[in-house]
Design a protein around this nucleic acid. Structure first.
Lengths: 156, 156
DNA sequence: ACTGTGCATTAATGTAGGTTAAGAAATGCA
DNA sequence: TGCATTTCTTAACCTACATTAATGCACAGT
């Protein structure tokens, strides 16, 4: 368990890494994401202040996610063993709940519905990241997000 | 904590229910799913023998998922408190890992890739449920699944 | 201050998968 | 055993979103 500072753009973990860690954000903003066969990034989650971010694989398994800093950040690095010993079951359940909603939304909501849900749920993150990042989180292209927003304004 | 037997088609839990339970499957097959605004079902997960299935909301929050039986089943019903006391952190982590992969796949894989991953990961479930159910789990229509399989055969 | 690189927007075109419809096969139920 | 319901498949058509490409901006580095 150590405190570190990272600069915007710094990569903390890459897909395929073993013995991946758990990162607790004190200040700043991290994200986790995958890169598909075509080289396209897909953001899995954002982690602002007081969030914890990690790949959910056991530490013996190569992880799936990249983690990097979207802003200069101050974070605490924990090993997965330490995290488990903390056995804060509530935190795991909360995360499951968020992920369950994410799956449900990806399956049953349109792009605009997912965007509006994001706006309501994470308004502060919306202000801090580019549209490109939001689009990547929503599972659409920046072009599509731009179009969606334009059409929404027209209707109002 | 009680043992119960349910018939195929029986509904154990509906979206909106409070104080939702945790179901451990001894034999048979359960599924959880949502129903969207258009009345369309989206399967969240299948739970065959030795799996546990539940909505990931706290028991005070209205749950999002329906749970019903796809086969006559014998199950154990637990309260969420009991599950938490078991504090089997490993089980929660495993579930997180599965869900993380699900999100990644929904975002970055095509329908055929998701189908082939399902085939490899859950071959026994493939034999036990209809194509309609598989399609619903994959996030596509039965028509699209039928088409995809046909095209795959052509190529081989 | 200049310059390059990435970001946001728009528009034209492409495509995976959705919708609708209809017939054949399988399954459940009386 | 017969009837009804659901499932699977095929096919024609439709739409949400992707791709490609071009333009104007913001801002980061020198």
């Amino acid at each position: 368990m150590k405190q570190i500072n990272v600069k915007k753009g710094e990569i903390l973990q890459k897909s395929g890494d073993l013995n991946s860690k758990v990162y607790k954000v004190n200040s700043g903003l991290l994200r986790s994401y995958t890169i598909d066969q075509k080289g396209k990034e897909h953001i899995f989650m954002f982690a602002p202040e007081n969030w914890t971010i990690a790949d959910s694989q056991s530490k013996e398994t190569p992880c799936d996610l990249y983690i990097d800093a979207l802003e200069d950040s101050s974070i605490v690095v924990l090993t997965k063993d330490i995290q488990r010993e903390g056995k804060n079951v509530g935190a795991f359940i909360k995360r499951l709940s968020v992920l369950q909603k994410r799956v449900v939304m990806l399956m049953s909501f349109s792009a605009i519905e997912r965007f509006e849900h994001f706006e309501q749920t994470y308004p502060e993150i919306l202000q801090r990241v580019t549209q490109k990042m939001i689009a990547s989180y929503l599972g659409i292209t920046p072009e599509a997000l731009s179009k969606i927003k334009r059409e929404r304004i027209k209707k109002s």
